Amino acid sequence: MNSKQRKSKRTQLTHKFGSHCFWSGRCLLTEELTLDHLIPKSRGGSNSLENLRLACFSCNNSRGDSLFPPRQSCK
């Protein structure tokens, strides 16, 4: 995904779910949220909106390529 596609997906997800981390529920600025793959790309996941959620960097990073929620959310 290029930066224009990422920005578009982030905007679409913000309109659909709001501007908060999917895992911790923390409200953040849209620019502070990262795109998180529910099924990681390394495990065959896609860049479709159905497979993407917005997450804070801490939750997204701690999750890595796991299929499970982060070990500790940043609540």
Score class of each variant (00 low, 15 high):
Met1Leu: 13
Met1Phe: 10
Met1Gln: 12
Asn2Ile: 15
Asn2Leu: 15
Ser3Thr: 11
Ser3Cys: 05
Gln5Arg: 14
Gln5Asp: 09
Gln5Tyr: 07
Arg6Pro: 01
Arg6His: 03
Arg6Ile: 04
Arg6Lys: 13
Lys7Arg: 13
Lys7Met: 04
Ser8Lys: 13
Ser8Val: 10
Ser8Asn: 11
Lys9Ser: 00
Gln12Phe: 05
Gln12Ser: 06
Leu13Gln: 03
Leu13Met: 00
Leu13Thr: 01
Leu13Val: 03
Leu13Lys: 02
Leu13Arg: 00
Thr14Trp: 10
His15Asn: 06
His15Leu: 10
His15Thr: 05
Lys16Tyr: 09
Lys16Cys: 01
Lys16Pro: 03
Phe17Val: 04
Phe17Tyr: 15
Gly18Arg: 05
Gly18Asp: 03
Ser19Phe: 05
His20Asp: 00
His20Trp: 07
Cys21Pro: 13
Cys21Trp: 12
Cys21Tyr: 10
Cys21Asp: 10
Phe22Pro: 01
Trp23His: 12
Trp23Phe: 15
Trp23Gly: 06
Trp23Pro: 07
Gly25Met: 11
Arg26Pro: 01
Arg26Gln: 09
Cys27Ser: 14
Leu28Met: 06
Leu29Phe: 08
Leu29Val: 09
Thr30Gln: 03
Glu31Asp: 01
Glu32Gln: 04
Glu32Trp: 04
Leu33Asp: 04
Leu33Phe: 12
Leu33Cys: 05
Leu35Tyr: 10
Leu35Gln: 08
Asp36Thr: 04
Asp36Cys: 05
His37Trp: 00
His37Ala: 03
Leu38Lys: 09
Pro40Ala: 06
Pro40Lys: 07
Pro40Ile: 10
Pro40Thr: 09
Lys41Asn: 03
Lys41Met: 07
Ser42Leu: 12
Ser42Val: 13
Ser42Arg: 14
Ser42Lys: 15
Ser42Tyr: 05
Gly44Arg: 15
Gly44Cys: 12
Gly44Gln: 14
Gly45Ala: 06
Ser46Arg: 14
Asn47Ala: 12
Asn47Tyr: 15
Asn47Ser: 14
Ser48Gly: 11
Ser48Tyr: 09
Ser48Lys: 15
Leu49Met: 10
Asn51Tyr: 14
Leu52Pro: 00
Arg53Gly: 00
Arg53Gln: 03
Arg53Thr: 03
Arg53Lys: 02
Arg53Ala: 02
Leu54Pro: 12
Leu54Asp: 07
Ala55Phe: 06
Ala55Asp: 06
Ala55Lys: 00
Cys56Asp: 01
Cys56Glu: 02
Cys56Gln: 00
Phe57Met: 09
Phe57Trp: 11
Asn60Phe: 09
Asn60Gly: 09
Asn60Arg: 04
Asn61Val: 15
Asn61Ala: 15
Ser62Gln: 06
Ser62Val: 05
Ser62Met: 05
Arg63Ile: 08
Arg63Glu: 05
Gly64Val: 12
Gly64Gln: 08
Gly64Cys: 10
Gly64His: 07
Asp65Tyr: 02
Asp65Asn: 07
Asp65His: 01
Ser66Tyr: 07
Leu67Asn: 08
Leu67Trp: 03
Phe68Val: 14
Phe68Asp: 13
Phe68Ser: 15
Pro69Asp: 14
Pro69Glu: 12
Pro69Arg: 12
Pro69Tyr: 11
Pro69Gln: 15
Pro70Met: 12
Arg71Cys: 07
Gln72Val: 15
Lys75Trp: 08
